[in-house]
Design a protein around this nucleic acid. Structure first.
Lengths: 317, 317
DNA sequence: TTTGCTCATGGGCAATTACTCATAGTTCAT
DNA sequence: ATGAACTATGAGTAATTGCCCATGAGCAAA
């Protein structure tokens, strides 16, 4: 009884100390004096108030929700790095917000003074992110492309990510003079045997960090729009369970790379190992929901930069 | 890049840093590393988040002493709702603590799903409370001002409570384009006859809950500081027995509205009926002792949010 | 009464945070 | 272009806080 009252009184004191500290903004010394206790006791009361969750802190800013999503996603999918940007309610652009966040993350890596190998995929989102990079000279790093920069018609690349990037940061760069998809597995072997391509592939395998887009399936998918896949090929792929692709590598709903004729024709470098390096996907948008979910589920990527809408979807299931 | 965007981004960063510091409990060093900035910059962002009121702290614990005071006050003055916050021993601010408590109570009403009419007075304390409100959308409610928002010199309001509030909660709002005091009873009638003012008055009479400040008498009183009353008018009022005012309505030591020339000039809406609705006063401080006592004694208010010092005073007499 | 346990306390110290100051970069008016 | 005014930055330092530990009070069981 007395014990109970005592500890009740202690909680009251904790509440009072916590109030004086967090709400009134007094120092623990002042609190100690006004409550007639030692500073250490005041400190204990304040931390007790926190431990007992008497003190509720909340952040009144759109960012708050994003940060909470990020923590939850990192936990749920065992990711190394997650960034969630606020969704633009009526934004139609698929790159606004996310591009800036992607650029900021790329920049963080570039600012390192020790030399790193940075691998880059392709796609509209990635291009938008790279376009946000400021001109910072990083001659110590190397940038390597995972995917070819040749269009299906033999023309130069659509989303010329690596050249834009190298231009901005003045680093050595290793493009891949191939299309994303070639006509057969045999052709791929032939092309990959070329010395130039060979060295690019070797470097890509050493990547410290990789940034890739995540492509969805469907007749509006990048692979179709850019002419690498015909509509009927795409439909067939989807019937076989394809959920999305990264650098052309098609995976199913569990995020497993498919044993499929299409994957045999992918000329891109393999996605660098997720165990040893950071592979960060940059993607958002309703159309990519399933593709992103599959990618994180199957650990095709171990980092994700996305928006609130995607985060909600991923946490819901 | 636009300056606007820059400072927006800075607030975002501040929010992020504040969240990491207060909610996630990281040190400023860790935050600095993860955001790629110096420790000092991280510290600045955290304090910016506090300064910009992005961080809201509240104490979720009825401190025994305060709770006892509250019960005793509710009993003694037949009040519907009493809240007592701890006094800050040597705090000079007249709003610290009470503003958060006021905001929490306002929030409780706003969270109701059935539409209500919420009436609001004016004053520094009320403004401080409203500034603590988070952004919650309550389009079902209506907010009406009891007092004018025009200064004695014709300028816009001093403590623009209702606009701040409407801004935070996105509800329909009905301000009153009048000064607190006009020159004569006749002018008041004339102004009150205007259609716009008329409808605001009608709505205010239907208020489900009302939040008001309690003003004291004296040459330091709000009415004087804000220029509505000259010093000699105030002195005369006090000689005639004035003890305090709510929305400009002056009452005596028993809390009875005075039959006085000054009250004939008050352009505010009448205080909504205490029998049918909650009228909650928010006030603390030694200078307001007598005014608050009169207000609760005469049932000008039937709810009170105040601090320990006032509670002790009210219970002593 | 003794023993053994729990727990609050205050001292001391290391970690963390707040603040001041000098400097470098920017803006803006001349 | 030039310089004043302003702002952000990093270093350095003082203030504040967090934590470990030895101590002793309170209390229940032996």
């Amino acid at each position: 009884m007395a014990r109970k009252l005592e500890s009740q009184g202690r909680l009251d004191d904790a509440a009072r100390a916590g109030w004086l500290y967090y709400v009134a903004g007094r120092t623990q010394d002042e609190i100690a004096i006004s409550m007639g206790i030692s500073r250490q006791s005041a400190q204990r009361l304040v931390s007790l108030a926190v431990a007992e969750r008497l003190i509720k802190v909340r952040l009144d800013h759109p960012i708050a929700a994003c940060l909470e999503y990020a923590v939850a996603l990192r936990e749920k999918f065992k990711l190394r790095h997650v960034e969630v940007v606020p969704s633009d309610p009526d934004g139609t652009s698929s790159t606004v917000g996310i591009a800036e966040a992607g650029a900021a993350e790329i920049e963080r890596w570039l600012k390192r003074s020790d030399p790193i190998v940075l691998a880059i995929g392709t796609g509209r989102t990635l291009k938008a992110a790279v376009d946000q990079l400021p001109a910072i000279e990083c001659p110590q790093h190397r940038v390597v492309s995972l995917t070819g920069n040749i269009g299906p018609d033999g023309s130069a690349a659509y989303y010329n990510v690596i050249f834009s990037m190298a231009d901005a940061i003045k680093a050595r760069h290793y493009p891949m003079p191939l299309p994303v998809l070639v006509s057969s597995a045999e052709e791929r072997e032939l092309l990959h045997a070329q010395a130039l391509v060979r060295s690019t592939l070797d470097i890509s395998a050493q990547a410290d960090v990789t940034f890739v887009g995540v492509g969805e399936m469907g007749i509006e998918a990048p692979l179709c729009l850019d002419g690498f896949l015909e509509k009927d090929e795409m439909m067939a792929l989807m019937r076989r369970g394809a959920a999305g692709e990264i650098c052309g590598w098609v995976f199913d709903g569990d995020g497993k790379l498919m044993s499929d004729a299409v994957n045999d024709r992918v000329a891109s470098a393999p996605i660098p190992p997720r165990e040893a390096s950071s592979v960060i996907g940059i993607a958002k948008g309703k159309r990519k929901f399933e593709a992103i979910k599959a990618a994180v589920t199957g650990h095709q990527i171990n980092g994700l930069i996305t928006d609130e809408a995607v985060a909600e979807f991923l946490l819901k299931g």
